[in-house]
Amino acid sequence: MDLSISKKISSLERDYILDLLEKGTRVDGRGLLEYREIKIDAGHILKSEGSARVFIGDTEIDVGVKYDLGTPYPDSPDEGVITCMAEFVPSASPMFESGPPREDAIELARVVDRGIRHSNLIDKKKLCVVPGKEVFILFVDIYYMDHNGNGIDTASLAAISALKSVQLPKLEQKVINEQTFQAPTGETYPLDIDDYPVTITFSKIDNHMIVDPNLIEELIAEARVSFCLNKNGQITSIQKNGKGTFSAEELVKAAKNARDLAPMLQQKVKEYTRDLTGM
């Protein structure tokens, strides 16, 4: 028997949630378009170039950004590379298991990755060290630490906050014992992000569209759709998942709601500074 089945939602709880939604409220007393409390802080990742720890309600995601040096793609010899990975830490939920990333972890990383990629928020030319030869590869590694629903919005918020805090080392070539190294000069520079694309996810439960589903809502939802929006309110990526379907009206209404909610989330990122003093 699948371990996760015991964590699936009982018919009792399902009926209760549906009943509440009919009344226009939710298990935790929120409105249908209301987020849980959002908190972004510096977290415990002291050895990364940039990081953030984000809580949405009881959901926690930590993101750390590391760099490596690599060769650029031939079609963009003067541009660095950004890559996302997500790890669902098994202590985050009894539903997560050890082992290689499952498809939901891969999906999470891909959705966050597309949100970053298509909003052109990072000038990839700033990640170039030696054109055509050496560029920075940025690893945006997403660690799902406590799973209580809406990992996608939390992860995208954490990723963008972590990127905002990145300080890359300035490098210079040094020859030691006839071997050439790239040595950090001790100076660093930020990525100068001026856009904060955020993701807003809607879950559909029996014709109700709710934002920021908690775990129990996420588990009974028939479908979900995530919109990533930039600072101009433009949609930069969409991801639909779940076995249910949406009508055009539902999707447009959700997109409008997402546009209304995005500035609130973007403000949270704007306010974030990575302060590691006292850690």
Partner: peptide
């Protein structure tokens, strides 16, 4: 027996 309504 089975319980219906309410929540846990």
């Amino acid at each position: 027996g089975q319980i219906k309504g309410g929540f846990l």
